[in-house]
């Protein structure tokens, strides 16, 4: 299916929760959705017969300067089409529902996004720091992160 057709299907089903379509200079195109409806939309994308997005390619956090975003790249092995889904989150206490019940592959990638950005994934089966030590302070990939001077007495 073409991305346009997929977006139309989503819009007809979820209406106002599909906030915008980002296509210009963006490959694959993104559907920006509202964070509250994300688990439902994810389940629809996976289970609907014509869509069957059974494979989560990539889950990444992004720090646009005024707000955060979580970008999901999806792929369907049966229908061989690709799509992207994005949610925008505010800078203070960013949090969104976890999708690891829909795509179990999301677990480690959500933990990494939490570790490096501080975005909390509610309902996740396991949300702990994964790449940095447990007692690290701060979330390094944020644009306003300041490198610490020392860690456990060793110069950083």
């Amino acid at each position: 299916m073409e991305p346009k057709a997929i977006f139309d299907l989503l819009k007809s089903r979820f209406g106002g929760d599909i906030l915008e379509i980002q296509e210009e200079g963006i490959s694959p195109p993104f559907a920006v959705v509202s964070p509250e409806k994300l688990p439902e939309i994810a389940r629809f994308l996976r289970d609907e017969p014509g869509l069957s997005f059974d494979s989560l390619m990539c889950l990444s956090g992004v720090d646009y300067k005024e707000r955060f975003a979580v970008a999901y790249h999806l792929h369907s092995l049966k229908e061989t089409h690709r799509i992207g889904v994005k949610v925008y989150l505010p800078k203070e206490n960013p949090s969104v529902q976890s999708v690891d019940a829909v795509w179990p592959a999301a677990n480690f990638m959500e933990r990494e996004t939490y570790d490096l950005y501080g975005i909390v994934f509610e309902g996740s089966i396991d949300l702990r720091r994964i790449l940095l030590p447990e007692d690290w302070e701060g979330h390094p990939l944020r644009k306003d992160y300041k490198y610490p001077e020392f860690y456990h007495g060793i110069k950083v």
Partner: peptide, 11 residues
């Protein structure tokens, strides 16, 4: 890099 020890002779 913020998490690499700059030389093992620091340890």
């Amino acid at each position: 890099s913020y998490c690499v020890v700059k030389g093992v002779d620091l340890l």
